[in-house]
Each structure stands twice: as C-alpha cells, then as structure tokens.
Design a protein around this nucleic acid. Structure first.
Lengths: 234, 234, 234, 234
DNA sequence: AATGAATGAGGATTCATTCAT
DNA sequence: GATGAATGAATCCTCATTCAT
C-alpha cells in the first residue's frame, strides 16, 4: 500500500501539505481550493496528488487525524473516577477543538459517515456511549438521553460557539448545552420525570402521551388549528 | 430608489423568481446555481438580474421575506397572556420553519449581520427580547440568559434538528434545547443560582468567579496543566 | 427540451462550433481539446457547453450528423435498379466520406454502439443489409457474407485508405476490399463454394470441416506444432 | 553510443521494463501512463528514463522488438517450398500476433515510418516483397498487387479482427482479406484481367483507363454529376 | 423589459519529464 | 545506478455576470 513516504523531503512535504490543508479546511471546509493548499504548502498541485489521491482523501486525512486524537481522549477518560466531570469535561474539550474548525465540525456533524473511517466512527460512538452511561449511572446526566442525542448536542454546541465569535466568551453555549443534560432535582431527590417529554409544537405544554397510536403533536384543537393557519402563511 | 417594478408582468416575474429562489436556496443554500433558479421561475437569467443586482441580493431578498414573517409572528406573540407558552412555542415554531431550509438556517445563523437588512435584525432582536423578558418575568425562563443566547440556541436547535433527519422525531433536539432554558427549582422555589456559571474547561466544575480581572478558565493548577498538556498533543 | 437555439447569433455560433468540432475531431478524434475547438469557433469554452452538455455530446452531434447523411444515401440507393452498382458504389462513397475523418472512422468502427444513437445504428444496419441482400440476389456479391462482415470490411477499407495517404490513389484499398466480396465464377457459372471457408491458421489451406465438434484450426499435426512453437517465441 | 547497459541488475531492469511496457502498450497503446509501466516493472519512473530517453523511445523499443521477430519469421519463410502457403500463412500469423496488440497495430499501421527504425522497415518490406513475388510467381496471388498493398491489407485485417471481438471467430476478416488477393480463374486458366482496376467512384463500374493524363474517377458525366451533387449535400 | 447567449476565470485532476536523495 | 518525489502545463467542466437581440 501507499503508507507514509520514506524520503525525508517527501515526509516533510507531506507534513506541510497536511498543515496547510488543516488550516485551509479549518477556515473554509471542503470549499478550500486545492491549488491554494498546494501554494501554502509551497509545493505544486501534483505533489498533493502524489500524497493523496483526491482532494476528498486529503480532507479525510486531515480530519481523521484530529478525530483520532479525540477518540484517544475519550477512551482515556472512560477510566476516570469522576464520571460526571469526565463526561462534561470531554464535551467541552471537544467543542473547544472543533468550534473554529469548519472541517472538524462538518466531519463530526456528519457522524463520520461520510468519512471512510467506519471503524473510527464506531470507536468514537462507543467511547462516548461509555462516558455517557457512567455519568448517567452516577446521576450526573439525565437518564433519558442516549449517545445519539449527545453527539447531536455536541455538534450543536460547536456550531453555536462558532456563531458566537467574539462576545459571550468561549464555552458559554456549551455550558448551556450541558445544562440541558443535567438531571432535574426536587429537594434532594432526582426527579424521574423526563423534561423533554413531547410537548405541544405550538404552545410548548407537555403532552399527555397516549399509550397507543400516532404521537400527538399538539395539546388540543386550538393549537392544532393555530399551527394549520401558520402553515398557510409561512 | 429601486422600489418595486411597476408593470404587472414584472411584478409577476419578481414573484415567481422569489418563489423559485426560495425553493432552490432552501434545498441547497447559496450553492444553488442562479441559472437553475431562472429556469424554475420560467424566466431568463437576465431577468433575475433586472430584479436583483447580484445573486447575493436575491438570496437576501428571499430570506428577508421569510424573516419578516417570523418577526410578525414574534410581535404578535408578545401580546400573549401566557408568556412561557408564547416564548417556547415561538422557538419551536421558528425551528420548524427553518430546520429543513438551508437558506433560512444560514441567514438566522449569521445574525442577519450579513444581510443588509439592519432594521429587520433589530426588529427581530427586539421582539425576541420582549418575549424572553416576559417569560423570564413569569418565571418560565431562567434569568441568566439574554436575547443573544436565545438566538444562538435557536440556531443550534435548527442545525441539530437538521442533522437528526429521520430518527428521534422532529423537535427532540429543540425540546432538549428548551430544557436548557428552564429555571431550576428547589422544592417549590426557583433557585437563583445560575446553572451556566463559568465552569472549568477541563473538569466542568463551577468556578468561583473572581470579582476582578480576567475570568478564570480552570478550577485549579491541576486542570490548567492538564489542559496545557492536551493542547500540545491535540 | 433544448432543441436548436432560436436567436440568430446563437444559431450561427452553434454552426461555427459544429464546424470547428468537425474539423478538430476529424483530425484528432476524441483527443481534440475542447478549448481548441472553442478557440477555432471564435467562442469561449462556456459557449460550447451551452450548446452541448459534454464534450462527448458534441462529438456525437458531429458524427451523428454525418452518419445521418450516410443513412439517407443508403436508403435512397436501396431503390436502385442496379443492386451491385448500388452496393459497391455505396461502399466506396462511405469510405470516401470517412477515410480522412478520424471521428467518423471511430464512430463507424464502434458500430455506433458508443453513440447514444441506437435508432441510427439500426437504420444504418438495416439499410446496408437491404443493399447487401439485393446485391447478393443479383449475384453481384458472394452469398456467404452478412451485413456484419460488410460493416467491418467497410471500416477496414477506411482505415486502410487513411494509411495510404498520398500514394496509390484514393480508392485502391477499397477496390481491393470490394474484390473480396465478389463472387467466384468458374467458366460462366458462379461457384457456390465459399472462398472464405475456414483455413489453416498456419499455411492457409482450406480445412475440411468436420461435421461435428470444435472447428479445426490447423490442417494437420505439422501445422499445429508449428503454431505452438511460434507461440512460444512470439 | 548508448548500447546496452553493463551491470547485471541494469540489464535485468531493462528487460523487466520492456516486458511491462509490452503489456501496457499492448492493452492501451501509447496512452498507457509511464508511471504505470514503471510500477508494473517494479522500478521507479526515473529508471525507465535512464534506459529510454522518452516514453516514445520506449514505445518504439517495444514494438521494434516484436517487429524484429516478425521480420525473422518472414525471412525464414522466404525459403519455403510452398510459396502460396508461406505467403498466406505469414499474413495470418502476423495478424494473429497483432490483432489484440494495440501497440503493434499502431506501429505496423504507421508503416514503421514513425519509428526511427528505418533499417527494420526496409528489412520487413523486403522480406514481405520476396514472399509476395514468389507467391505471385506460383500463381497463388494475383499479379496486380504490390508489397505496399499487401502491407496495407495486412494492417486492415488486424484492425478488422480487433473490431470483430467475440463474434465471427478469429481470422474471418483475415480470410476475407486473403480472398481479395487470390487470382481470378476462368475455367482452369488464370484470368489476366485485373479485378481491382480503377472503378467509377459512384457506380463501381470498371473504368477504361486512358493511356495518358490524370486518371478518370468516374465512368461518365452522369456519375460525375451525381458525385458533385452528393458532395454538396454531404 | 425580457431573453438567453456568451464570457472567462476558476477548480479538480492527470501525466511526461526532471532531479534531489 | 536507482529511486520516486516534484513539477506544472494541459484538460474538462461550472457558473456568476454581462450584453446583444
């Protein structure tokens, strides 16, 4: 297989290409022109193609590299003795890595499904799942969320942080997101009631879930009609 | 002033262009080719340029139009007698509008800053602020978030919903996001403690905020060093 | 659908593109660079793409146009009262059209299968078949060839003429090819014996066809061994 | 002089390059990428250039090698006691060699003119000429063809066989081509009339050749006009 | 006013050839 | 001598914008 190049200059070039690509993709995602990456790396376009068969392959190499580090961190934290701290700390750390990195955001948002790195995706999901379960068992995370929810919230937090640019300080949106995951307590007891029960799409009131049939979307006729009227105008 | 065109056929064309552009931009965002929009509208590309000086102007016209409707809704809800319902309902309604609309997501995410519609941005912010304040006054929303936070959370919810595609049912991520906004109660009292106080970026523990100086990022030397080590490896 | 452009300048450009493409493809086949065609036509590359969605489509348009004329000619000749003259005349005429036209050679050689013009292929085959059958019925063409043989011989004649460039006069190789198709006469009778019966691949002697089994390739053991030895050295 | 390389490994490399190039060029002709050849030979691209100054030189080396074997065979057959068998057998053998070899077809088709191997071309022509003359003397080949005709027919046969791919059995087009070369007999006598005398380009009738001046192309005014009309429409 | 044709600057990719290691 | 890395011109195709009709 191709593997890493043997010659020193080639290794150096490969590294410079990866760095240039990292910056370019971080700034502009997949839209970054390959020629520009080559220029920044100080090589010809052909050299980029010697190291990576397509632009997409380069993109994935860059992103996979970062994600591998993230998976490593997650796997290390699984053994933490403070599951809540490990879980929330991990979320914040990941968001910090990704929030100004367009490419990493895209990749994590895509569930890594678009990457050929299927194993990596599973490793990531599996490590995150472990972190989540342990934090839930410790009562630090509400029990009604699963790993998929968490991944999505993580992505959302990144994107929100990115939007936040200068103001508000980094991490504020992530902190808010974490709050959505904390369990509800009443007095000193954890309240088993799920906070994110289905709610009326119009007024947001909790819906009494019917045991059978199609799940309700509205709390009553009034809201259903309101929604219908809105739909026509919007 | 440019104003609206006078002739009936011109007005009709303008309308058809806006509709075609709405669909195209909703599906593909700014990437939708202008020729395709013209084709769908049944006009020539030149006609699009007669009505809108650049593709970007057309894009803005489309999203501005949608956002105007959203502002109208917000302004209407301000007069609601149930502030919490109005606030959360509005959030869910906006997300529902935008979650499958690439263009609208982008526009709302951009804070309308990229739009030339400065007035509109202020109107939107102002109406949302009013909704927020009333809901906070009614104890339905935690007091430590501002309108900017809410806008960002709203955008995050859209993007998360979009990512969620088939599973999980629509609205789940929005519901979780709303949970992040609900006040914390202890017994029957609302707890004044802010949940999203600054937390350690490593372990997530609350930080005792120093009254002056640069805000702390870590809970102590241990975490600061941990962060430093991570930075070098990641 | 696209059809022909309506505006005079567009029609003119389309025509100029087709002419430039005709010349370029005739000279270099599909290898002719599209930019060069555009330059020769005095238009930008984009204009070529306005008229033809891909380079291949342009190629096919050029070639299909020529082949349509050829099919017309064949269909006209089917009604000739001198079947032999019509058949051989057609062959020579086609070869003359194609012999210096790389593109047309390729297209005819490919059996038009590579063209999307499936109908055209059938029309061509069908008209040629009719010409052939009538010439065979008139005793002007040996009875043991079919339309597929004729197409191949036609292609071969083109390619041979192309090779012949200056010397020998145009048409000589085609005339020889036609000779391969003429019936053998003995005295005044047409000899029913097929001339292209299977022959030994080594010495060319006619093979006595065994009534069953796999057809023989050699006239005897000597030739089979000779072939075997050759195979090893070549 | 360049000569052959001296070191054993260099000689071995040269051989492996030639073999890899043979296969690649046979399959794809000159289009085969040089890097691919180097890879198949298990050497670097630079090594190829050490042995052959350009890709074209490598191409010529490969085909020259094959053609040398063909010349050897021809020279051996000149001494055959059955001139007809030798001649036709040689044709078939050459075609069999070349019909699935893109490179060899091209090279033979090019009259070896494009090769720098001028001597080789003359040797080939000379040996083939000898075979032809002997076969003609034995009455096995019509007397009105020369060595140049035969070379061209040989090339045509290759190209036709290539086109024929699965159907018709290998050798059919070659057999037909050979038929074009066989003499015409009337009763038991060979008819001196040349079959491929110049014929009218329109109707295919034999032309009475004028003893002087430019050779006629048509049998009469009618056909000349028909040709003229065709030229305008085609 | 509308049309849709034309433009031409990019952008991804390939490959013969050169040259530092 | 060998290697294989680097080069960069060439090629196909897209699309925002302009402009003749």
């Amino acid at each position: 297989m191709s593997g890493r190049p043997q010659r020193a200059d080639a290794r150096r070039n490969r590294q410079r290409i990866l760095e240039a690509a990292f910056e370019a993709f971080a700034a502009d995602g997949r839209l970054a022109p390959l020629d520009e990456i080559a220029r920044r790396a100080g090589v010809g376009a052909g050299t980029v193609y010697r190291h990576f068969p397509t632009k997409e392959a380069l993109f994935q190499a860059v992103v996979t590299d970062r994600i591998e580090r993230i998976v490593d961190e997650a796997q290390a934290l699984v053994r933490s003795e403070e599951p809540g701290e490990a879980f929330y700390g991990f979320l914040m750390w990941v968001v910090e890595r990704a929030m100004f990195n367009h490419a990493l955001c895209d990749a994590l948002a895509a569930d890594l499904r678009t990457l050929d790195a299927h194993d990596l995706d599973e490793q990531f999901a599996s490590a995150l799942d472990e972190l989540l379960r342990r934090a839930q068992a410790a009562g630090e995370v509400r029990p009604d969320v699963d790993v998929h929810d968490v991944r999505t919230l993580m992505v959302g937090a990144m994107l929100m942080e990115r939007r936040q640019r200068p103001e508000g300080g980094p991490g504020r949106m992530t902190a808010l997101t974490c709050d959505a995951l904390r369990p509800v307590t009443k007095g000193d007891e954890t309240v088993p009631v799920e906070r994110n029960e289905r709610r009326c799409e119009v007024c947001g009131k909790p819906l009494t879930s019917a045991p059978t049939g199609r799940p309700a979307r509205f709390c009553g006729t009034a809201c259903r009609q309101k929604a219908h009227r809105r739909r026509k105008t919007a």
